[in-house]
Write a protein that binds this DNA or RNA. Structure first.
Length: 105
DNA sequence: CGACCTTGTCGTCATCCGAG
DNA sequence: CTCGGATGACGACAAGGTCG
């Protein structure tokens, strides 16, 4: 999906689009952009900031959990591979022995 | 020793998808 | 349709290794 961190801005309305906060230095946050009333816009902005903080925190934890599960899944697969390799080896041995036995008849 | 490369981890964003 | 969780993709950063 070639994200390239570029702001295709599909962000939801309530979501101060990401970018801004990524780089506070360039963010236009605390500047009163349009001539909206200071009180309302500030309130909305604080609310939005809070919502965003919550969302980021939850997503951070979700990402941790997701990575943990992925590691566990990979470990499981590796265990299974090892097991199947052992079984395969045992079966090959058995086959070899049976062939030898059969040849002597 | 410093410059560069590799690998692992983390936080964030975008997107998908199921639940309500 | 909206919301929120899960996850792939990306960039930043740190630690360790390699080479001139």
């Amino acid at each position: 999906m070639a994200v390239t961190g570029d702001e295709s801005d599909t962000g939801t309305a309530s979501d101060l689009s990401a970018h801004h906060l990524r780089n506070p230095a360039t963010s236009s946050f605390c500047q009163s952009e349009e001539g909206t009333s200071a009180h309302d816009s500030k309130h909305l902005t604080e609310d939005a900031i809070h919502k965003r903080a919550i969302r980021l925190m939850k997503n951070r934890e979700a990402a941790r959990e997701c990575r943990r599960k992925k590691k566990e899944y990979v470990r499981c697969l590796e265990t299974r591979v090892a097991l199947l390799e052992d079984q395969n080896k045992a079966l090959m041995d058995e086959l070899r022995n049976l062939k030898l036995l059969y040849r002597h008849h």
